[in-house]
Design a protein around this nucleic acid. Structure first.
Length: 478
RNA sequence: CGAGGUGUAGCGCAGUUGGCUAGCGCGCCUGCUUUGGGAGCAGGAUGUCGGGGGUUCGAGUCCCUUCACCUCGACCA
C-alpha cells in the first residue's frame, strides 16, 4: 500500500461505482450535509460558494440581456395554482401544502411554490395594461419545493435553489425570440463559465413543460454517459395569458393577450460540474466558479520567513483571484490531497528553497502538472494558467461528449448501442408518440431533444421505418 | 410509490448459539517532536447500539412496528 492508495480509499473509484463516487465526493468535499427533513440538503459554505459564483456569473448575463430581479412569495393559493389546466396536472402530484396558520385551519390551503408561473401571471395581470408596459423581463433567485419520491444531492432534492425567469411580450415572435435568446445564454454559460459543452434542442411533446407550447433544453453528458437536462427555456404562447387574463391595449387600442416565456437553471448544474469534470481524486472545479481559485500552501511554515512570505503572496494574489492560504498544522501532503479533493484549480507551494530562489511551485488540478514560477509577474502567470485550465477542461469534456454520440437508422443497432455504449444515440424519429414510448420501454432511453427538423425523402424513423423529419438525440437520463 | 440494501462514538467497521463494565481503526483533544504527497511518540475524551413496542431472569443480538439514508425501477430541474 503506497500513500497514493490511501488517498484513493477515501473516495470510491469512478469506474467501480459511479453513483457511490458521486455521493462520496459530494459529502467529502463538504458541499452538502443531509438535514432533518427527508430529501432536503444543507448547502455548506463550499457548496454554497459554488452556487454564489454561478449566480454572480449568470445574473450578470441576465442583466446584460435586460432582465430585472424580483422576489415572489413562496405560497400559492390552491385556486391560483388551478387556473391553467395542463400546468396544475403536471405539478399537483408533487406539491407540498400548508393547511394551517398557527392553530387555525386555513379557508384555502396554500401550496409551497414548485415553480412560480402562476404567481408571475397573477401579478402580470394586475400590472400590464398597455403596450407601453411591455416587455416585462423578470427573474428571481429562489428555492422551490417538489415532493420527489427519490432524491439525490443536487440532482433531485425536495427543495432546490434555482433562478426562474418569467417574461411577457407583446407578440408571439418576440416571445419566441426571448425563448431562444435565453437558451443561448444557458448554452454560453455552461460553455464559457462551467467548461461544459451542451447540446441545444427542443423537447418532444411528451417531455415538455406542463403548460408550455414548446420547451427547449440544453443537455449535457456526464462521465458515465448519462444525460443531464441542464437548463430549460419554455415558450408559452398566450395560454397562460388567457387563463390568467393578462391583456394589454395595443397601439391600435385593441385588447391583446401577452405572449410569455419562462426559463430556469438550478443547483442541478453543480451536479453536472461534479459528474462532467471530476476524477478519482475528487472534484475538479472550473476556475470561473471555484470558491477558491488558488490555495497557497506554506512548506515548513515554522521556519523563519516562510509564513510571512506565503501570507504576503496570498494577500497580493487575493486582489485578483479568490485566494486562500492553508495555515492549518496538517502535513503538506495531507493538504495537497484535501485541496485536490475539493477541486481547487491551482495549488501554490512556497517553502524555504523557493524563497531563496524567488520562486514558487504551482500545480494544476486538471492535469497534475507541476511548474516553477518566478514570484515576479505572478499575477499574469496565474491568470494565464486559470484560463488554460478552463480551456483544457472544456476541450476534454467536449472530446468526451463527441466521442460518445453514435448514429444509426437501424432498430437492432439502436438497441444494442443504448445497451452497450454509454452515451447518446442520434436517430431519426417520425414524431409518433408510440415510437417514442417503445424506445423508452425497450431500452429505458428517453428522447433528450430534437436537434433539428427537416424533410428529407430518404430518412426513416429508427423504430417504425416510416418517413421521419426529426433528428433526435436519445439517451439514459438522470 | 414498487424491489433490494444499510443503520453500533465525528467517519469506517467488528460484536459468536441472547450472557458480565459494548470494542477496533481513523479522526478529535493535550503535550513534545516533525513538515516538498494524507507524520511519530505519550496521554485523554466521546455511545439513548436510528426511534417505539414486545419476547426473556437477561436483547446491540430474536419478533413486530416506525424513521432515515443508499441502490435499481416509475416521475421530474
Amino acid at each position: 500500500m503506497g500513500k497514493k492508495d490511501k488517498l484513493v480509499e477515501a473516495i470510491t473509484a469512478m469506474d467501480q461505482d459511479f453513483t457511490q463516487w458521486y455521493t462520496d465526493v459530494v459529502l467529502k468535499a463538504e458541499l452538502i450535509d443531509y438535514s432533518a427533513v427527508k430529501g432536503c440538503m444543507i448547502l455548506r459554505p463550499y457548496g454554497y460558494g459554488i452556487w454564489e459564483n454561478i449566480q454572480k456569473n449568470l445574473d450578470a448575463m441576465f442583466k446584460q440581456t435586460g432582465h430585472e430581479n424580483v422576489a415572489m412569495p413562496m405560497f400559492i393559493p390552491e385556486g391560483l395554482l388551478q387556473k391553467e389546466k395542463d400546468h396544475v396536472e403536471g405539478f399537483a402530484p408533487e406539491v407540498a401544502w400548508v393547511t394551517h396558520g398557527g392553530s387555525e385551519k386555513l379557508a384555502e390551503r396554500l401550496c409551497i411554490r414548485p415553480t412560480s408561473e402562476t404567481l408571475f401571471c397573477d401579478h402580470y395581470a394586475r400590472i400590464i395594461h398597455s403596450w407601453r408596459d411591455l416587455p416585462k423581463l423578470y427573474n428571481q433567485w429562489v428555492s422551490v419545493v417538489r415532493w420527489e419520491k427519490t432524491t439525490r444531492p443536487f440532482l433531485r432534492s425536495t427543495e432546490f435553489y434555482w433562478q426562474e425567469g418569467h417574461t411577457a411580450h407583446a407578440t408571439a415572435d418576440e416571445a419566441v425570440e426571448e425563448t431562444m435568446r435565453m437558451l443561448d445564454v444557458y448554452a454560453d454559460f455552461y460553455r464559457n463559465v462551467l467548461a461544459i459543452p451542451v447540446i441545444k434542442g427542443k423537447k418532444t411533446e411528451k417531455e415538455k413543460f406542463a403548460g408550455a407550447v414548446s420547451t427547449f433544453t440544453v443537455e449535457a453528458m456526464m462521465h458515465d454517459g448519462k444525460a443531464l437536462q441542464s437548463a430549460t427555456s419554455h415558450y408559452f404562447g398566450d395560454g397562460f395569458a388567457k387563463a390568467f387574463g393578462i391583456q394589454y391595449s395595443d397601439k391600435n387600442n385593441q385588447l391583446q393577450h401577452v405572449h410569455q416565456t419562462s426559463w430556469g437553471l438550478s443547483t442541478r448544474s453543480i451536479g453536472a460540474i461534479i459528474m462532467v469534470h471530476g476524477d478519482d481524486s475528487g472534484l475538479i472545479l472550473p476556475p470561473r466558479i471555484a470558491p477558491t481559485q488558488v490555495v497557497v500552501i506554506p512548506i515548513a511554515a515554522h521556519k523563519p520567513g516562510v509564513l510571512d512570505k506565503a501570507t504576503a503572496i496570498t494577500e497580493d494574489l487575493a486582489k485578483s483571484f479568490r485566494t486562500r492560504i492553508d495555515t492549518s498544522d496538517k502535513q503538506p501532503g495531507w493538504k495537497f490531497s484535501e485541496h485536490e479533493m475539493k477541486g481547487v484549480p491551482l495549488r501554490l507551494e512556497i517553502g524555504p528553497r523557493d524563497i531563496d530562489a524567488n520562486q514558487c511551485v504551482v500545480v494544476r488540478r486538471d492535469t497534475g502538472e507541476k511548474t516553477t514560477l518566478s514570484l515576479d509577474q505572478l499575477d499574469e502567470s496565474i491568470a494565464g494558467l486559470l484560463d488554460q485550465i478552463h480551456d483544457n477542461m472544456l476541450a476534454k469534456a467536449e472530446k468526451s461528449l463527441n466521442s460518445r454520440i453514435y448514429e444509426t437508422s437501424d432498430w437492432d443497432t439502436f438497441k444494442s448501442l443504448i445497451a452497450d455504449k454509454p452515451g447518446f444515440v442520434k436517430a431519426m424519429w417520425c414524431g409518433d408518440p408510440d415510437c417514442e414510448l417503445k424506445i423508452k420501454e425497450e431500452t429505458t432511453a428517453t428522447s433528450r431533444c430534437i436537434v433539428s427538423e427537416h424533410e428529407t425523402e430518404d430518412r426513416i424513423c429508427v423504430v417504425c421505418g416510416r418517413a421521419a423529419a426529426k433528428d433526435v438525440l436519445w439517451g439514459k437520463a438522470y
